[in-house]
Measured scan of single mutants.
Amino acid sequence: MEVRTIKVFTTVDNINLHTQVVDMSMTYGQQFGPTYLDGADVTKIKPHNSHEGKTFYVLPNDDTLRVEAFEYYHTTDPSFLGRYMSALNHTKKWKYPQVNGLTSIKWADNNCYLATALLTLQQIELKFNPPALQDAYYRARAGEAANFCALILAYCNKTVGELGDVRETMSYLFQHANLDSCKRVLNVVCKTCGQQQTTLKGVEAVMYMGTLSYEQFKKGVQIPCTCGKQATKYLVQQESPFVMMSAPPAQYELKHGTFTCASEYTGNYQCGHYKHITSKETLYCIDGALLTKSSEYKGPITDVFYKENSYTTTIK
């Protein structure tokens, strides 16, 4: 009895394709271990004539594949690729409408935090270190965002349907971005203890939790000093293409032309909904596939993004 075979390709990165001759009487799992086709788990399936010449994702289970996976995804987590594939199996079914010149995501599976993050990423200057993220990001900007969303979920250790947080998501993504040249110098002034300067680099240099107003941050924000008295913390120097200011959701007025974009969060910790506000020729609110415009805006804002380049204080 002759062994019926077909020729397929296996890959971990969709760049390096490895030619395989597979036995049609055995499952993919018996031949390769966990195997995925377009995100779908085909591990328990036997090869079919229609699979001839198709590319299958496999887990990096030998040295060659491990090197290829690390170079593309910059992670050695053995569960990463499987999590990416199972997320992709959902995100490829989502709709990605162009809204006001940006790629958004039609609401499904509690994905409003991903839509808000995706919209924000198209408006701030950011370059990702893992080629996987950078490639998928370019495709997302062009309207094909399924891979990018699935990668975000995998890097953030999230599953489809789980509630997510924009600030946490951005923080994970910033860790995989090139923020080497970003720098922030802060000064804390206390009447009792004097003053202390701190220099922050990388992710810490672009994120701040405690106030939404970048102007206020430049002037000074009140913080408790270690001595128990009130101290003032203010920005001395900022070198970065953008800054992200966050605070627990509270009524906040966004003035046209003073910011790049913002995240609105309605609801409580267990259950809520994100919308995205962007400042173009007027203010726009993007909620999944829905767009509304207004000249002014007041609502429960939790993150505001500002364009920056270089700032030095005039406070002496």
Results as ranks from 00 to 15, higher is better:
Ser240Val: 03
Tyr96Thr: 08
Lys191Arg: 13
Val236Ile: 09
Thr116Gln: 08
Lys183Ile: 06
Thr260His: 08
Ser240Cys: 03
Thr266Trp: 02
Arg167Ala: 01
Ala69Thr: 10
Leu81Gly: 07
Leu254Thr: 06
Glu168Ala: 15
Lys293Leu: 07
His48Phe: 11
Phe70Lys: 12
Trp107Val: 04
Pro130Cys: 11
Tyr84Val: 09
Val188Asp: 02
Asn110His: 03
Arg4Trp: 11
Glu168Gly: 15
Ser171His: 15
Asn147Met: 08
Thr258Met: 09
Arg139Val: 05
Gln195Lys: 14
Tyr155Asp: 09
Val203His: 13
Ile6Glu: 06
Gly39Thr: 12
Glu162Lys: 00
Lys7Ile: 10
Lys7Trp: 09
Leu126Pro: 07
Gln98Glu: 13
Gly39Tyr: 10
Arg83Lys: 10
Thr116Lys: 03
Asn100Phe: 05
Thr43Asp: 11
Met209Trp: 15
Thr211Asn: 07
Lys307Cys: 08
Thr43His: 14
His51Pro: 03
Leu65Thr: 14
Thr292Pro: 01
Lys93His: 07
Thr282Cys: 15
Lys293Ala: 12
Asn110Cys: 08
Lys191Pro: 15
Met170Cys: 04
Gln196Asn: 08
Ile286His: 07
Met209Tyr: 15
Thr27Pro: 13
Met170Ala: 00
Asn111Arg: 01
Asp109Gln: 10
Tyr57Ser: 05
Ile301Arg: 05
Ile152Cys: 08
Cys182Arg: 03
Cys271Ser: 15
Lys298Phe: 12
Trp94Tyr: 03
Glu253Gln: 06
Thr169Ala: 06
Met207Phe: 04
Leu153Val: 04
Lys316Cys: 15
Pro47Gln: 08
Val21Ser: 12
Ala177Tyr: 02
Glu281Ala: 02
Lys95Thr: 13
Val3Asn: 13
Thr35Pro: 14
Leu291Phe: 15
Tyr73Leu: 04
Leu17Met: 14
Pro34Lys: 11
Val206Gly: 02
Lys183Cys: 04
Lys46Tyr: 12
Thr5Lys: 15
Thr76Asn: 07
Asn89Glu: 15
Gly272Leu: 00
Leu17Val: 10
Val243His: 05
Gly228Lys: 02
Leu17Asn: 12
Leu118Cys: 09
Val12Ile: 00
His176Cys: 02
Phe70Asp: 11
Thr103Leu: 04
Tyr284Asp: 06
Pro130Val: 08
Met244Arg: 00
Thr91Gln: 11
Pro78Asn: 03
Ser310Glu: 15
Thr43Asn: 06
Ser246Val: 00
Val221Ala: 06
Val3Phe: 13
Met245Ala: 02
Gly164Lys: 02
Cys149Ile: 12
Ala205Val: 01
Phe70Cys: 14
Gly257Ser: 02
Leu81Val: 14
Asn49Ile: 10
Thr211Trp: 03
Met244Ala: 02
Ala262Ile: 07
Ser25Ile: 15
Lys92Trp: 07
Leu102Ala: 01
Thr302Leu: 04
Lys93Tyr: 13
Val8Pro: 07
Met245Lys: 01
Asp23Arg: 12
Thr282Val: 10
Leu119Lys: 01
Ser295Gln: 14
His256Thr: 08
Thr76Leu: 14
Phe128Asp: 05
Thr43Gln: 11
Ala136Ser: 09
His176Thr: 02
Ala40Leu: 13
Ile223Gln: 08
Met26Ala: 13
Phe148Asn: 01
Ala289Thr: 09
Gln197Arg: 09
Ser86Met: 13
Tyr155His: 10
Gly33Ala: 08
Val236Gln: 01
Ala140Asn: 00
Glu215Asn: 02
Tyr138Met: 14
His176Met: 10
Ala140Thr: 07
Tyr234Arg: 11
Tyr84Lys: 02
Gly143Tyr: 04
Asp109Tyr: 03
Ala117Asn: 01
Ala136Asn: 08
Gln270Ala: 11
Thr260Ile: 15
Leu81Thr: 10
Leu153Pro: 04
Pro130His: 01
Glu253Pro: 07
Gln196Ile: 09
Gln230Thr: 13
Val166Met: 11
Glu308Ala: 08
Asn129Trp: 13
Leu290Met: 13
Ala262Gln: 05
Tyr234Met: 09
Ser240Arg: 03
Thr55Asp: 05
Gly210Arg: 07
Gly33Val: 06
Val236Met: 11
His276Trp: 13
Thr312Ile: 14
Pro130Lys: 00
Gly194Val: 03
Lys298Ala: 14
Met244Pro: 00
Phe9Pro: 06
Tyr138Ile: 14
Ile45Asn: 15
Arg139Met: 13
Ser310His: 14
Gly29Val: 05
Leu114Cys: 04
His48Tyr: 10
Ala247Arg: 06
Lys316Glu: 15
Lys219Asp: 08
Tyr306Ala: 06
Tyr137Pro: 03
Thr64Ile: 08
Leu283Met: 10
Thr103Ser: 01
Tyr73Ala: 04
His273Glu: 04
Asn147Gln: 14
Met207Ile: 05
Ser50Gln: 12
Leu118Val: 07
Lys95Pro: 03
Met26Asn: 13
Ala117Trp: 00
Pro248His: 13
Glu2Gln: 12
Gln20Met: 10
Pro131His: 00
Thr260Leu: 15
Thr302His: 09
Lys298Asp: 07
Ala289Pro: 05
Ala250Asp: 06
Thr64Gly: 11
Gln216His: 10
Ala262Met: 05
Asn187Tyr: 03
Cys271Gln: 12
Val12Glu: 11
Phe70Ser: 08
Thr35Met: 03
Phe259Leu: 04
Glu125Ser: 07
Phe80Gly: 04
Glu68Arg: 07
Lys44Gly: 10
Gly161Trp: 00
Leu163Ile: 08
Glu296Leu: 09
Pro249Trp: 05
Lys280Thr: 07
Thr232Glu: 05
Lys280Asp: 10
Lys275Gly: 00
Lys233Tyr: 08
Tyr172Ile: 15
Pro47Asn: 01
Val304Leu: 07
Val8His: 02
Asn268Tyr: 03
Trp94Asp: 08
Ser310Asp: 13
Tyr252Gln: 03
Gln123Arg: 02
Gln251Tyr: 08
Thr75Pro: 02
Asp303Val: 07
Asp165Gly: 14
Pro34Glu: 14
Met170Asn: 01
Ala177Asn: 03
Val304Pro: 01
Ile105Asn: 06
Ala115Gln: 13
Asp41Pro: 12
Lys106Tyr: 10
Leu17Ala: 13
Leu254Gln: 00
Cys227Val: 02
Pro300Leu: 09
Thr198Leu: 13
Asp23Glu: 12
Gly202Val: 02
Thr278Tyr: 13
Leu81Lys: 03
Phe242Thr: 01
Glu68Val: 03
Ser263Arg: 02
Gly288Leu: 03
Cys112Ala: 11
Gln251Asp: 13
Tyr57Arg: 06
Gly267Glu: 15
Tyr234Glu: 07
Lys298Leu: 11
Ser310Tyr: 11
Gly228Met: 07
Val21Leu: 14
Met26Pro: 02
His176Glu: 06
Leu126Gly: 06
Leu59Val: 09
Ala250Tyr: 10
Phe259Ser: 01
Phe56Arg: 03
Thr91Asn: 04
Leu179His: 05
Thr312Gln: 14
Gln20Lys: 13
Thr192Val: 09
Val99Met: 11
Tyr57Pro: 03
Tyr269Met: 15
Phe242Gln: 00
Asn178Lys: 11
Ser263Gly: 00
Tyr28Ser: 10
Val166Asn: 07
Gly101Leu: 03
Val206Phe: 01
Ala146Cys: 04
Asp109Trp: 01
Ile223Ala: 13
Ala205Phe: 01
Thr11Leu: 04
Gly267Thr: 15
Gly257Asp: 06
Ser171Leu: 11
His256Met: 14
Glu52Tyr: 11
Glu264Ser: 07
Ser263Tyr: 03
Gln196Val: 10
Thr76Trp: 10
Pro34Thr: 13
Cys271Pro: 09
Gln175Cys: 03
Phe9Trp: 10
Lys92Leu: 11
Asn49Ser: 12
Asp41Leu: 09
Met245Phe: 14
Leu235Tyr: 03
Asp165Ala: 14
Asn111Ala: 03
Gly164Tyr: 02
Gln222His: 02
Pro97Asn: 05
Asp62Ile: 09
Leu291Val: 15
Cys112Lys: 04
Tyr284Ala: 09
Val304Arg: 03
Leu151Arg: 03
Tyr96Glu: 12
His51Gly: 02
Lys191Ile: 07
Glu68Ala: 07
Asn89Ile: 15
Glu52Phe: 09
Arg66Ile: 11
Leu153Lys: 02
Gln122Val: 02
Ile45Pro: 10
Ser181Leu: 08
Val188Glu: 04
Glu52His: 13
Thr169Ile: 13
Gln31Val: 14
Gln230Leu: 14
Ala154Lys: 03
His276Val: 06
Val243Ile: 11
Glu264His: 05
Phe80Ser: 01
Glu144Asp: 13
Leu119Asp: 02
Asp62Gln: 05
Val304His: 02
Asp303Pro: 01
Val99Ser: 03
Lys316Thr: 11
His51Gln: 08
